[in-house]
Nucleic acid binder design. Structure first.
Lengths: 205, 205
DNA sequence: CCGAATGTTGACCGATTGGTCGGGTTCTTT
DNA sequence: AAAGAACCCGACCAATCGGTCAACATTCGG
């Protein structure tokens, strides 16, 4: 199955986490065997059990690391200042860029969210969600209180709309690229710019 | 693994498809064993191979049926007439209702779209996407040509935004319900109404 | 009433699964 | 240098995997 060359970086534990993260982000939990992880990490399968008691714990550790990294890079990319409109523009763009730059992390965490059968660490995977969400809601609320935005819309709803637009773009990018009328599949900045513009001005003349 | 009572409906082949669809919608391909499918269908494992040559073919048949059903119910729910604005409202609401009414079908097809490791039937699973997308783009274009909508936005982008909002809502519903500021997690109609309203009027005063 | 086609099954197969174990290697500490 | 801890692996285990097969049951046209 795995013909990948062993990855030579860091100590044993980190090598295992890296290899497992790579495999788990591509295929589901049951589709990744401990053998494949060991092969990818360039060590023996038995050695994995020196660092992790079982497969579930390893998967959980991978998920924990991915979620942590994702939260860090998202929180860093999202800070901005200026007018609320500018903050919104920057928020949307940098948020989507993070998703596209770290697809393994996003797929890993998002798969865990979608899986209904075995809720291994759903509440854990949801943390990044909470961060983004509350930050975005705060921005929108401040815009409303400052009079820069209309006071009669639900900030949580707009936050959902914006995050959803980015996540959906991330998930459907390969599909969107197949359709001729779509010109923004390979232009995430343009996509977010267009979206924010529409949100701000609306569709009716 | 499976303690479910055997499902007694239809001929053998249909029972297998139903049972497999139920299991495949909850767990990934490798996480569902032929034994579990047989148990769920109330037949022997060997009997499955009388109707399907192997697991992949069975999975493909399940996916084909799910995609077909989903397309049918979506196309039916989406037809509407009236002003472009009314059509948009109806489109958003009924589209989301279909997603929520048939979560197994949606999860099945969407999982196939997200899985990078083994593209079993991606092009096939994308068909429902194309239908929704082109139909929605046509509605928006007609609205622009009739002057009911601004001519300076990209219809494909708005279509992506609207479909994405619904898909994201469908996927994140359980998470959204955990956050206090969100009041629309159990009110999909209100969610879509709010979204369409924002899209039409914009956020700035 | 009979033979053929179709359904259906338990028993079985080689391969692979997650996981164990005993022993070897390397590192650290004194 | 000695000793103990940490690291690493080949061989192995029971269980389960997808899949096969020969045999039994049912149906049905002639």
């Amino acid at each position: 199955m795995g013909d990948a060359l062993p990855v030579a970086e860091g100590d044993g534990r980190q090598r295992i986490l890296t290899a497992a993260g790579k495999l788990f982000s591509d295929k589901a939990f049951d589709a990744v065997s401990m053998n494949a992880i060991a092969c990818e990490a360039g060590i023996s399968k038995a050695n994995i059990y020196h660092y992790f008691p079982n497969k579930d714990t390893l998967y959980l550790a991978v998920l924990r690391a991915a979620s942590h990294n994702l939260r860090a890079v998202l929180n860093e990319a999202v800070n901005a200042h200026g007018s609320v409109v500018d903050v919104l523009r920057h928020f949307a763009r940098s948020h989507l860029q993070v998703l596209l730059n770290r697809p393994e992390l996003v797929r890993l965490v998002w798969r865990e969210i979608l899986e209904k059968g075995a809720p291994r660490a759903q509440e854990f995977a949801e943390q990044g969600f909470a961060d983004m969400f509350s930050a975005l809601v705060d921005v929108l609320k401040s815009g409303q209180s400052r009079g820069e935005l209309r006071p009669d819309f639900d900030p949580a709803l707009v936050a959902t709309l914006l995050l959803g637009a980015n996540v959906f773009f991330f998930q459907s990018r390969d599909i969107l690229r197949h359709y001729p009328p779509i010109t923004f599949a390979d232009d995430p900045s343009g996509y977010d710019a267009g979206i924010v513009e529409i949100l701000l001005r609306g569709l009716v003349p």
